[in-house]
Amino acid sequence: MAQDTSLAARRAILTRLKAEAPTSGVIAAASIYPPQTPPTRAWPFIRYGAATQLPWKPTGADGSLIAVAVHSFARGPGEDQASRIGAWVARVLDGAVLDLSAETGFPATARVRHTGNTTLQDPEEADAWHVVTNLEIIVAS
């Protein structure tokens, strides 16, 4: 039976980003949020996006495939800072292997793969930029 492990994966990803943030020089750990961000927040910041979870059962294994984007927001001038943050997110997470067992209550491992970044100018703020870092997470249990 397939388990929805998207919440466990989200928590593990946010924990990994927050643990790496102090040495990054690009983002503060306190500025890394789940999908809901506080109404007042310091720029730059990161927000975990809405995830799509699908059953994944290769060769009889029980798991899930999760597609999600991590969103990085920064103010200019230009997109440089947002791009640096997006590149950092990709570096930290691409190839990560995360143990989800404590969160799920059963043995589960998440393998993260970076599948690309998109840089956008924020239409609501002339000097704000947004980088979408796309991830594919395969959870096997």
Rank of each mutant, 00 (worst) to 15 (best):
M1P: 10
A2F: 15
A2W: 14
A2V: 14
Q3S: 14
Q3Y: 14
D4W: 04
T5C: 10
S6K: 14
S6D: 12
L7I: 08
L7F: 13
A8I: 09
A9L: 12
R10P: 04
A12L: 15
A12E: 10
R16V: 02
R16A: 07
A19D: 06
E20Q: 09
E20N: 03
A21F: 11
P22S: 03
P22D: 01
S24Y: 05
S24V: 03
V26T: 08
V26A: 06
A28Y: 11
A28I: 06
A28Q: 09
A30C: 05
A30R: 08
S31A: 01
Y33S: 12
Y33K: 11
P34T: 07
P34Q: 09
P34K: 13
P35A: 06
T37V: 12
T37I: 05
P38L: 10
P39Q: 12
T40W: 07
R41E: 13
R41A: 15
R41P: 11
R41C: 15
A42Q: 03
P44E: 14
F45V: 09
F45P: 07
I46Y: 00
I46E: 00
R47F: 01
R47L: 00
Y48S: 08
Y48L: 08
A50D: 06
A50F: 00
A51I: 14
T52W: 01
L54N: 03
P55D: 11
W56T: 03
K57L: 06
K57N: 04
P58T: 02
G60I: 09
A61P: 00
A61G: 01
G63T: 14
L65K: 09
L65G: 02
L65P: 04
A67F: 15
V68C: 12
A69H: 00
A69P: 00
V70P: 04
S72D: 14
F73A: 00
A74G: 06
R75P: 12
R75G: 12
G78T: 13
E79Q: 04
E79M: 06
D80G: 07
D80V: 09
Q81I: 06
S83W: 07
I85N: 03
I85L: 01
G86A: 03
G86T: 00
A87T: 04
W88G: 04
A90V: 02
R91Y: 01
V92G: 00
L93E: 01
L93I: 08
D94N: 00
D94R: 02
V97H: 01
V97T: 07
V97G: 02
L98P: 09
L100W: 02
A102V: 02
A102F: 01
E103S: 07
T104P: 02
G105V: 03
F106T: 06
P107Q: 05
A108Y: 01
T109M: 11
A110S: 10
R111D: 00
H114E: 10
T115K: 13
T115D: 09
G116D: 05
N117Q: 08
T119Q: 09
L120S: 12
L120E: 13
L120C: 10
Q121Y: 08
E124L: 10
E124Y: 03
E124K: 04
E124W: 13
E124P: 08
E125R: 11
E125V: 15
E125D: 12
E125S: 04
A126T: 05
A128Y: 06
A128R: 13
W129A: 05
W129K: 03
H130W: 12
V131W: 04
V132N: 14
N134A: 15
L135M: 13
L135F: 15
E136S: 08
E136L: 15
I138A: 15
I138H: 11
A140Q: 13
A140L: 10
S141L: 10
